[in-house]
């Protein structure tokens, strides 16, 4: 296994680990706002690492640009959708979970 393949593998595994942590957060976090944090951050970092790992294996520039484009679109979508869901929840008067409430 070459150095590039090894680095690619390490990045892919790290990306998967962040996806896993984000999913655990989505399941464990107590309310809609904290769950959005888990989705927006851990998954974006996970996707970023997976994209980096795949870039090292990309057969050409066209594929590389497509991969980066996927990450940028996912970032944009995730930030926008997270904002819209949180705003809607707050306008509906959904109070955030506070430390001391039951988890």
């Amino acid at each position: 296994m070459s150095l590039v393949e090894g680095a690619s593998l390490a990045l892919l595994i790290a990306g998967a680990a962040f996806f896993f942590a984000g999913t655990v957060g989505l399941l464990r976090f107590p309310d809609v706002y904290t769950r959005l944090h888990a989705l927006a951050k851990a998954d974006n970092l996970g996707l970023g690492l997976v994209v980096l790992g795949l870039l090292l294996r990309a057969p050409g520039w066209a594929t590389g640009i497509k991969l980066v484009l996927i990450w940028l679109l996912a970032l944009l979508a995730s930030a926008t959708v997270g904002f819209l869901i949180a705003r809607r929840a707050r306008r509906h008067g959904i109070a955030p979970w506070r430390a001391g409430d039951r988890e």
């Binding site: 984000g22 957060g25 955030p96 506070r98």
Partner: peptide, 16 residues
């Protein structure tokens, strides 16, 4: 976020 999610006691202190 990963740290909070994977800790047994999450220790979140959220708010606006």
């Amino acid at each position: 976020v990963a740290g909070f999610a994977l800790r047994p006691r999450m220790g979140l202190r959220p708010g606006f």
